[in-house]
Amino acid sequence: MALPVNIPHAGETIESALKNQIVPDQEFLLQGSVLDTSLPVVIDRLRGLCDNADIPPETFHDHEVVYILKDFNAPATPGPAGQGVMLRVRRAVDHPELPYQLRYVGYPEIGNYPAVLRNCLDVPVSSNVCEFLQELGAKLDHEFMAKGYIMKKGRIKVTIFKMYKIGAGMSKDNLEAMTMSHLVELSVLTTKTDMTVAEDLRNLADQLKPLVQLERLDYRRLGPP
């Protein structure tokens, strides 16, 4: 007599994980900027605030390529639906053996949060992800290089980096800086239920108050891409 055995398959476990909100797919983000001349001061302050203050902060050098996936033949409809899905592929230039990262970020949630809260999905992928996306129909929108420092405080990831445009020619050495400042980002991944970590984020941001103004940016005000 065969007993009905319920074997869960991987899709079900993923769905149940998402439903029970175990998977951290929400991201709190605070952004600010600091001029290059004041960079050492900010770095020193952050070193004191973050973990592992005794070792010099780790640098990173990433190359990001952004694809847009939408129906290019349809007429452009106004509003967010017409802008398509933006997919970001990032690779570490200084660690070529590590997998690429594919990231999707959603629109910021409306509400009175201390930081920008948005849906965020990060997936490690193999190196042929660019061809895959192009096969799906996504078009390359823009790409840039980011070089800077990365630190962490508990669950909060702190990055200070400078964005570079890739100059003429395909060689990656020809970098031009886009601005004369560094971008400071504080981000933390959390689930839909755990909102307490935003307070820690806000406290850390307040510690940097006179040097860097970290705040919730309203992306709609920055203008259409």
């Binding site: 592992n52 780790e58 990173f60 053996e97 590590l98 990060d122 490690p124 990365i150 669950r155 980096f161």
Partner: peptide
Amino acid sequence: FQHPLPHPVYAPMGMSKRRRAAGPE
């Protein structure tokens, strides 16, 4: 406290390098 920092920056924190590469490979 010493977790390897994520490279590239979007990678999840707190995982060893081998663990990160385990998925795609």
